[in-house]
Nucleic acid binder design. Structure first.
Lengths: 222, 222
DNA sequence: TAGATTGTTAATCGATTAACAATC
DNA sequence: TAGATTGTTAATCGATTAACAATC
C-alpha cells in the first residue's frame, strides 16, 4: 500500500527528525504517542505528521496513536538503516577524527570500515579501532569492499579530486564536509553537503534581525 | 524601499548560498552576472532569484544584470556580516579544534575571541592564536566582553547546561554541534543546530532509493 | 536603436492545514 | 458504548514560476 511515488524533499528532511525524536521517546520509556503529542514536542502540526507518514503507509491505530518502538522501526526501514550501509572516511584531520570518534556509526546501523589519509604520521595507525590506510590505496580497497558512503573531510583543495575518485570507484553516497560544492553526475552518485558557513550565516542573519527588532526607532531610509 | 516585512526561512536559507556563489564568482574574476546565469550555476530559476532579492531591495540594472562584487556586498550586509559579530567556542575537543582551525571566521567577518574547556591539558594553551580558558571563568568573561555567538562543541551531556549558561549571560546566538536539541526561550536567543545525524540519514534514504530504482523488478507487496 | 534583463505583479504549483468518516 | 485518534480527502495557504512593462 505504498504511495511514495514522489516524496518531497521537505518530507525526506523531516524523516530523520522523526527518527531522532522517536529514539529519544523510546529511551525515555514512552510506549505510545499520538500525532498531536508528537507534533507538540517537534513544533509540527498533527496533520502534517499524519500526512507525512501517509506517504509511506499506515503505521498507527485509530483511537490509540502510534507505538513508539514500532514507528521508529518503520521509519528506520524507510530511511534504509537496516541495509547495513558501509562507510569510509577520507581525511583524518581534526574534523575526520572528530566524526570518527563522536559519531556513533554502528549505533545507527552504519559500519565504519576504514579511513584514508596521506600523512605518514597517521597512516598505519587506528582511530576508534578503525585502520587508517594511505590514500594511494583507495582504489584497491574500494575494488575489494562494497562501500556505500565516503565521508569527505579532506582539505578543500582535494575535495573535487577525492569526490571524483570515490564516484569513479562506484561509491554511491558522498557525505561532504569540505565546504566545496562538488560537481558530479547525479545519475552516478548522491552528494550530501554539510555547509558550516551556510549555517553560521543563517544564524548571523537571525541574530541581526533580533538586534534590529530591539531598537526599532531608526527604521527609516539610510 | 525595504519590503522584508516577513522573509520566509526558505529565502533566508538561500541567502548564504548566494553569498558563497558570488564569492566564488568574484574570486574567479567575474564582474557581472544575470539572474538566469546565476540560476544555472545554482540550480535555481531566474525568477526565483529575482523574487528572493526583491524581498530586500533593488540590486541590479535592467539590460545588464548584477555586479558580482556589489551584490555580494549587499547580501553580506543583509546577513549582517559587517556587524563584526564575536564568537567563543565551548569545548575544545577534536570537533571544537577542527572548527577553530578550519573555519575561517575572520575571513567571513567574525572575530573568534576565546575558547573554553575543562581539561587541564588544554586550558592555558592557544589554538590558532586564540586563548583557551577554563569553563569556570565563562560568566566572568562574558560579563566583560560582548559575545554574539557561542559555538557548542561540548559533549552531549553538557549541551543543555552550557547552552543555558550562554543564554543566561546574554549571548544571543548559539551554534549547536552537540546533536542535542536544546530547549530555550526564543525571546532570549537563537539556536542554530547542525545535526550530523539528520544529514547522514537523509543521504542514507537517497542512496536506498537509488538502490531500489536499480532493480525495479521486486516492487510488489511483501 | 534593438537586445537584454531587471523589478514586480499575476498565475500556478505544491505543501500545509482542516475536516471528518472510519474504527480502535 | 463513548472518546480518541487515525487515514485520507478537500480547502487553504505560501512559495515558485511565468509574464511583461520598464529601462538600461
Amino acid at each position: 500500500m505504498k504511495r511514495n511515488s514522489k516524496v518531497s524533499t521537505a518530507v525526506i528532511r523531516r524523516l530523520p527528525r522523526y527518527y531522532r525524536q522517536l529514539s529519544e521517546l523510546l529511551e525515555a520509556g514512552t510506549v505510545r504517542i499520538s500525532s498531536s503529542a508528537l507534533g507538540r514536542t517537534m513544533g509540527l502540526t498533527a496533520s502534517q505528521i499524519r500526512q507525512d507518514l501517509f506517504c509511506f503507509g499506515e503505521f498507527g491505530q485509530q483511537g490509540y496513536g502510534y507505538k513508539v518502538e514500532s514507528l521508529r522501526e518503520e521509519i528506520g526501514e524507510i530511511l534504509g538503516l537496516s541495509r547495513g550501509h558501509t562507510v569510509v572516511v577520507l581525511g583524518v584531520g581534526n574534523l575526520g577524527r572528530a566524526i570518527m570518534e563522536n559519531f556513533r556509526f554502528s549505533h545507527n546501523g552504519f559500519t565504519l570500515l576504514a579511513a584514508f589519509d596521506v600523512s605518514e604520521r597517521i597512516v598505519g595507525t587506528e582511530v576508534m579501532g578503525v585502520p587508517v590506510y594511505h590514500a594511494d590505496t583507495l582504489e584497491t580497497y574500494l575494488a575489494a569492499h562494497r562501500v556505500d558512503v565516503g565521508v569527505l573531510t579532506v582539505p578543500i583543495s582535494e575535495a573535487q579530486t577525492m569526490g571524483d575518485r570515490l564516484i569513479e570507484a562506484g561509491v554511491p553516497g558522498i557525505w561532504n564536509f569540505t565546504n566545496y560544492e562538488i560537481t558530479y553526475d547525479p545519475a552516478r552518485a548522491v552528494v550530501e553537503s554539510v555547509h558550516f558557513l551556510d549555517s553560521l550565516l543563517a544564524l548571523c542573519y537571525m541574530i541581526s534581525q533580533r538586534e534590529d527588532a530591539a531598537r526599532p526607532e531608526n527604521e527609516a531610509e539610510t
